[in-house]
């Protein structure tokens, strides 16, 4: 069955097709959720909500643009909506900071560790970092999605980078200590 046929069946609420679609995309979308969420459990909740939204709105998908892109957008929006409910974005306005070139040594840093770092970032830093760095949204898009201004978005990104670098440096220091 081609992807389009599968989508057609999903549009008719065919349970088997829905299961198939889930199998195809759950891995990618779960990874996406993991990056945007605070932890594993929350990511699962977000994935569940995202798929329910996807099956609910699949009739609105008109084969314009890639299907995966559409799925990712819905997933990201689902997560953002959740955070909007929690009023995560309403952080007091902070002074903008300059974005400096941050470079780090790449050694044996595991993906799990990086994921953990992202998840441990404050909510808005995490969202902005994900949106900008990993999912290629512009600051303008992010500002609209999170209902913040562009300056804030840039500032949040810089802080996110700083925090990540600090964490990585600290980790490395501890590694070095251990190896000594």
């Amino acid at each position: 069955m081609s992807l389009n046929q599968l989508i057609e069946h999903c549009k008719k609420n065919d349970t088997r097709a829905q299961s198939e679609l889930y199998k195809l995309f759950s891995g990618k979308l779960f990874t996406l959720c993991l990056k945007y969420s605070r932890n594993y459990a929350e990511a699962q909740d977000h994935l569940q909500d995202a798929f329910l939204t996807i099956f609910d709105k699949i009739n609105q998908y008109k084969y314009k643009g890639s299907f995966e892109g559409w799925l990712r957008r819905i997933t990201v929006n689902t997560v953002l909506q959740q955070y909007r409910k929690e009023k995560v974005f309403e952080i007091a306005q902070e002074e903008n900071i300059e974005d400096e070139e941050i470079e780090i040594d790449e050694d044996t840093i595991s993906i799990e560790f990086l994921l953990k770092l992202i998840q441990e970032l404050p909510d808005r830093y995490r969202l902005v970092f994900n949106l900008y760095v990993l999912d290629g949204y512009s600051h303008k898009d992010i500002a609209e999605m999170l209902d913040i201004n562009i300056g804030t978005s840039k500032s949040n990104l810089a802080r996110a980078r700083q925090a990540l670098v600090q964490s990585i440096e600290a980790y490395k220091a501890s590694q070095n200590l251990q190896s000594l």
Binding site: T31, A43, E103, D105, I111, L115, V133, L164
Partner: peptide, 19 residues
């Protein structure tokens, strides 16, 4: 030495976890 963005981008490129 890598820019932190690229570090994350490269690591997450092929990262996939099944729920």
């Amino acid at each position: 030495k890598k820019h932190i963005d690229r570090l994350f981008q490269e690591h997450f490129k092929d990262f996939e976890v099944a729920p």
